[in-house]
Simulated scan of single mutants.
Amino acid sequence: MRYAQGGGLTDMERAARERIRRQAVERFESGDRSRDIAAALRVSVRSVERWRRQWREGGAAEVASRGSPGRPKLSDAQIARLERELERGPLAHGWEDQRWTLARVKTLIGRLFHVSYTVEGTWVLLRRHGWSWQEPVRRAIERDDAAVELWRKETWSRVKAPRRSAGPGWSSRTKPGSR
Score class of each variant (00 low, 15 high):
G58A: 03
S68M: 11
V43I: 12
S132R: 15
V124R: 10
P69V: 00
A77L: 11
K153R: 14
A146T: 01
G59H: 02
K175S: 05
L108N: 00
A166F: 13
G169H: 07
G169Y: 04
L74E: 12
L41S: 05
R2C: 07
A16M: 14
A15V: 01
V119P: 02
H129N: 10
A161F: 12
E96T: 00
V43W: 07
G94T: 01
V45S: 13
E149C: 05
S132M: 12
G121M: 06
D36V: 12
G121D: 06
V148L: 14
E62T: 05
P162Q: 02
A80Q: 07
G89P: 09
A16S: 13
K153E: 14
E120N: 06
A4T: 08
G6P: 10
R84N: 10
S116M: 07
R14Q: 14
R66F: 08
G110Q: 07
T10M: 02
T101S: 09
H93K: 04
E13C: 01
A15S: 12
R111C: 03
L86G: 02
W95N: 03
G167S: 09
G70R: 11
G31Q: 07
W131F: 12
V25Y: 12
F28Q: 08
H93G: 08
R111E: 14
R71L: 14
R21C: 04
L9V: 00
R71P: 09
A16G: 09
S172I: 15
W131D: 04
A64F: 04
M1A: 11
P176E: 04
G6F: 04
P168G: 00
S44C: 05
T101D: 02
E29R: 15
A15L: 11
T155I: 10
E154Q: 14
E96F: 01
A64I: 00
R50T: 07
I79F: 01
V48A: 10
W95D: 04
G169W: 05
H114G: 04
E87S: 08
G7F: 05
V45N: 15
R71V: 06
S34W: 04
R42H: 10
D32S: 12
W133M: 03
F113Q: 05
G59S: 03
R66K: 15
R88Y: 06
E49T: 04
P162L: 10
Q5W: 11
S165A: 10
L102I: 00
E154T: 09
T155E: 13
K153L: 12
D76H: 08
R158M: 11
D32M: 13
P168D: 04
I37Y: 01
R164G: 09
V48K: 11
A4N: 10
R50N: 12
V115Q: 05
G7E: 09
R19D: 14
D36Y: 07
R2T: 14
E26T: 03
W170H: 13
T122F: 00
R143G: 01
V115W: 00
P136F: 00
S171D: 11
S116E: 15
G59Q: 02
R158G: 03
A77F: 06
P72Q: 06
G59F: 02
V137N: 09
R127D: 07
R128G: 13
E57W: 08
L86M: 15
Q54M: 15
V63A: 06
R163Q: 10
Y117I: 03
T122L: 02
A146C: 02
K153G: 03
R42P: 02
R152M: 13
R127F: 03
K160Q: 10
L9M: 12
R99P: 00
S47N: 13
V124F: 09
A15T: 06
D97T: 00
A24Y: 04
